[in-house]
Each structure stands twice: as structure tokens, then as C-alpha cells.
Amino acid sequence: MQIFVKTLTGKTITLEVEPSDTIENVKAKIQDKEGIPPDQQRSIFAGKQLEDGRTLSDYNIQKESTLHLVLR
């Protein structure tokens, strides 16, 4: 499925993911596309910070959902 990741600069990245993917996985995909190390990424969805060990389905993130990426 496709999800979108919006950065603070307003750029939107499209990722191909599975509901079973962990947040860690997703951060690795963002690193592949953007070169941002996962330890600098904070992902926010529906106002909640997403934890690395959880999966997209844990957070009820579905296709075409938009995550927000904040850098630390």
C-alpha cells in the first residue's frame, strides 16, 4: 500500500509499505529516499509519536494515510 510522509519543509514523500511493516522499517525506507538517519526521525500520526517496534497496523495506518516527519 502507499502512504505519504510530509516533512516540515512541506515536501511529501510517497512510500510503498505493508500494514505489517514496523515503524523502524518505514524510517529505513525514508532514509533510502531522503538520506535522513532513522535516529533523527520522529514520525507523528494523528497527533501521536510512533514507536519503532510497533507496526503500521498497530496505529491503524491505512493506505494513503499521511505521516508527519519531524527531525530531532
Rank of each mutant, 00 (worst) to 15 (best):
E64Y: 14
Y59N: 02
L56Q: 01
T12C: 13
L71Q: 11
K29I: 05
D21W: 12
T7Q: 05
N60D: 10
Q41L: 15
K27D: 01
L50F: 03
M1Q: 00
L69P: 00
L8T: 13
K27I: 12
M1E: 02
Q62G: 12
M1C: 04
A28L: 14
E24V: 07
R54Q: 08
Q41M: 15
P38W: 15
H68M: 11
N25H: 11
V70T: 08
E64F: 14
K6S: 06
T22A: 02
S65L: 04
F45L: 06
R54I: 06
R42Q: 14
R72T: 13
E16V: 12
S57K: 12
D39I: 10
V5I: 13
H68N: 07
L71Y: 10
I23W: 11
F4M: 05
G47I: 04
I61W: 01
G47D: 09
Q49N: 11
L8A: 13
I13F: 13
R42L: 15
K33A: 12
L15H: 00
T7G: 06
A28D: 06
K29A: 07
Q49M: 14
F4R: 06
K6V: 14
K33N: 07
E24T: 07
T9Y: 14
E24L: 14
A28P: 00
H68C: 09
Q2E: 09
T12L: 13
T7L: 15
R42K: 13
I44D: 05
A46M: 14
T66D: 02
Q31G: 09
G10P: 00
R54T: 05
E51G: 03
S20Q: 09
F4K: 07
G35Y: 04
Q41D: 06
N60G: 14
Q2T: 14
L69E: 06
P19M: 09
S43F: 15
Q2G: 04
I13R: 00
D58S: 13
M1F: 15
F4C: 04
K11W: 08
G35W: 04
V26A: 00
T66K: 03
I23G: 00
T14K: 10
I3C: 03
D21C: 04
K33Q: 12
F45A: 05
D52I: 05
V26E: 01
G10V: 01
D58M: 03
L69F: 05
P38R: 13
L15I: 12
D52H: 05
F45P: 04
S20Y: 10
S43R: 05
V17I: 03
L15W: 00
D32G: 08
E34A: 13
T66Q: 05
P37Y: 09
Q2N: 11
E18K: 13
M1T: 02
L56H: 02
L8H: 14
I3W: 01
E34D: 09
Q49W: 15
T66W: 06
Q2D: 05
K27W: 10
I30E: 00
K33F: 10
G10Y: 03
N60H: 09
D39L: 10
D52T: 05
D39S: 13
K11Y: 11
T14C: 07
L50K: 01
I3G: 01
Q41G: 06
K11T: 09
Q41V: 15
A46S: 08
L71P: 11
R72I: 14
E34L: 15
F45V: 07
H68Y: 15
K29G: 01
D32I: 13
I30G: 02
L67C: 01
G10I: 02
P37E: 08
T22R: 06
T7R: 04
S65D: 14
I44V: 09
L69S: 02
Q40F: 10
L50S: 01
S57I: 07
M1I: 11
Q31E: 09
G47N: 07
E16S: 09
T55R: 09
I44L: 13
A46I: 07
T7N: 05
I13E: 01
E64T: 04
D21A: 06
K11A: 08
D39M: 08
P37L: 08
L69I: 09
P19Q: 07
E51N: 05
E51A: 07
T9A: 11
T14I: 13
Q31W: 15
I3M: 01
K27G: 03
R72C: 11
T9P: 03
P38S: 13
Q40N: 10
D39A: 11
T9G: 13
H68R: 07
L56S: 00
T14N: 05
D21H: 04
K6M: 09
